[in-house]
Design a protein around this nucleic acid. Sequence first.
DNA 1: CTGTTAGCGCGTTCAT
DNA 2: ATGAACGCGCTAACAG
Lengths: 227, 227
Amino acid sequence: MARRKQAVTIKHVAAEAGVSLQTVSRVINNEASVRPEMKVRVQSAIDKLGYVPSIAAQRMSGSRSYIILALNDRDRTIADWRARQGTDWVDQMLLGGMLSCAENGYRLIIELVDTHNDHVERELAAAIAALQPDGVILTPPHSDNPLITGLLAKRQIPFARIGSRSTGDGIALTMDDEGAAQQATQHLLALGHRSIGFIAGPADYQLSGWRGHGRSRDEHGRPACHG
Amino acid sequence: MARRKQAVTIKHVAAEAGVSLQTVSRVINNEASVRPEMKVRVQSAIDKLGYVPSIAAQRMSGSRSYIILALNDRDRTIADWRARQGTDWVDQMLLGGMLSCAENGYRLIIELVDTHNDHVERELAAAIAALQPDGVILTPPHSDNPLITGLLAKRQIPFARIGSRSTGDGIALTMDDEGAAQQATQHLLALGHRSIGFIAGPADYQLSGWRGHGRSRDEHGRPACHG
DNA sequence: CTGTTAGCGCGTTCAT
DNA sequence: ATGAACGCGCTAACAG
């Protein structure tokens, strides 16, 4: 297999703009301390070369993975598929969340798992280890599976529970309309924008003040998390 | 954001098993040259520690990304979603491919793009640069978009065109049944298993001889699928 | 057959 | 406000 390396890397951009790698990195991450002129120069170099950061590399150096994991019931999913009547989860849940992700430079990856199975934890743990998502979305019947919510809470991974009214860790969304996943996603992303480390008790986040823009992060504004 | 590092890495496994990283890597990738006893020792260490390789890291070192990219028309997708009648693409196309991917340790990521838009190429290029997928699946109307197929062919990225009869680069699947995407996926994966470098002309691969890879868990039989 | 050496692309301390 | 150096987890050459 032809080594699939990154065609144009941050290094090329740096050379093109005549600056150091870090400066480019700073521009990419929208950091403050960069002279406007530099910023412009780097940005034009980026556009010119059509550079796009590799999420794999980004993740490798400890930053976000820009990936949201969605857990769906395997059996149910397969059954629906075979019956060709899946107007169910996909449309309501997936698309909404997917759109929100896309709007913010994130990607939604769907993982099918068996809730009733004993190795739910293993499956989840494996998915998390492999993907290292920045957030997780749970759909019924996973939303109320303590093994799942417990693991997530334990690992400090932000997650949303769709179609669940019970209290507990994570964000619970009850609305069954097609906007559920979308909101869930936005919550997750919003959290990411605030350098989270929450999930320790009943949270109370306000979606209202959220505003979209891809990969930019501001460090202030701790989530109004009071238990 | 709490540095989301890999909890248990290949290094831990190596220590636990008392071997070198490379040996562990070889076991993970199911390479032949490893003494059975070593294999067992390493494997048990893996199980004991619950180790799962990070696809980000795997990709970083030039191997596969274990990701298949599926391109779908954005407008159409959103429209269907709003109309709550999406029994369309998702069920037929996505689920099938998704299942095939899952069965082989791969992940399917859906990307929405505007075919009619002029920057289709930019969008595609960006997605490829960011995700670096091992293969791409095209759905109508992308399947016959020369800008897309051209770019893919040029970059030597294996891809399948669903719902297209025209000849050209990539694999063309005409069947409209729910197995299309599944087959497309399998083709792609099969190619990967063979260290491809094809896509230069009409390819002719036989799906029949295909069989699961190391990290694939034998699931139940896949729905009928004739070449 | 197994261990050692080198990076992959990017973010992150320090230095400057 | 910038740059240099190091490390992340993993695999691909090369030894031995």
